[in-house]
Design a protein around this nucleic acid. Structure first.
Lengths: 165, 165
DNA sequence: TCCGGGTATCTTGATATCAAGATAAATCGC
DNA sequence: GCGATTTATCTTGATATCAAGATACCCGGA
């Protein structure tokens, strides 16, 4: 009888006509992700980052040398709007973790490049982040983790199929 | 090879020292919840609500007649700060979906009460919401849903134990 | 050449959120 | 009783986000 079960019990009492089975699954998913996000944010904060700024730096870092992508490239892999990305890059530029430079061949487009300081920050932060994720996922046994993985893949595949179809 | 696998492949190339197994699980969880949230928000919007305002109305509704709780009661079941809750109640009051009244016995405390209009709104919205959740969860087969449930329970139990211990 | 349409990025205005602290009222210890 | 502490809620100031539209530039066709 966890916190989600208590909510479902209330609905059962008040609205017995509702089938709240799906609400249990989705509610638990939401709470789990909420907790994981909060814990991971603590690690980011140790490096002066937020989840948002980490995402940008990590996307640049994992794209490989020279650690440079256009805002458009970043947008395509990060589920945010263009205005949000402009703001994130502004903040990172102020913190001297990235620089913007204009492409002389197409002056509409911009390159966002990790500075040496930005590279050092993300190298350290991602190492700590992976350690945090390892610690968090250890709340499940290895068997449970192995059982969960294909279910999440299937769920996400269903979503991808829906989004494109 | 889904979008999360592509991210993991990039990290494997750039930082083969990192164990990104946990990142796969956590990344998929995050994406699934992000998608589910966006879809559920569409249903809320049909009733003039957001996820935030739905949460307040639903908490009042499932508490049972007379559909009245103090901000403190609401806070204890909704993972938000007191300032956020004040703002949510302000918005709902403007929309005439709830009213505030002061308790004569303890003038610090306040009762937030569903108006008839608020009750009618949440009755309809929660019915539609449950239908949306049923549709979304159908991306998994019944067997997959049955397999997922105990894993999420176990994960959330681990979190609850950690949070309290 | 020049215009229309498309592309890449940024700006604007409105909201929602949080952290920290303010306010007001109740209660506790003496 | 009376000051100090605790409790319940709200306020303030900063930030992040989004939707919609503005800006600046490129390109293809007449």
């Amino acid at each position: 009888m966890d916190a989600v079960d208590e909510i479902l019990a209330q609905w059962n009492r008040e609205r017995p006509d509702l089938d709240v089975g799906p609400m249990g699954l989705i509610g638990r998913l939401g709470r789990i992700v909420h907790f994981l996000t909060r814990e991971m944010d603590k690690t980011f904060a140790e490096y002066g980052l937020t989840g948002a700024s980490f995402d940008v730096l990590a996307t640049l870092r994992r794209s490989g040398a020279p650690y440079s992508l256009s805002p458009g490239d970043l947008l395509s892999t990060m589920m945010i709007t263009s205005g949000t990305l402009t703001n994130r890059i502004d903040q990172l530029e102020k913190a001297r973790l990235v620089t913007r430079s204009h492409n002389p061949d197409d002056r509409r487009s911009v390159s966002v490049l990790l500075t040496p300081r930005g590279l050092a920050t993300i190298e350290a932060a991602v190492t700590a982040h992976v350690a945090t994720q390892k610690r968090l996922i250890a709340l499940l046994s290895p068997d449970e983790q192995a059982a969960l993985d294909p279910l999440l893949r299937s769920f996400l595949a269903g979503i991808a199929a829906r989004a494109s179809g």
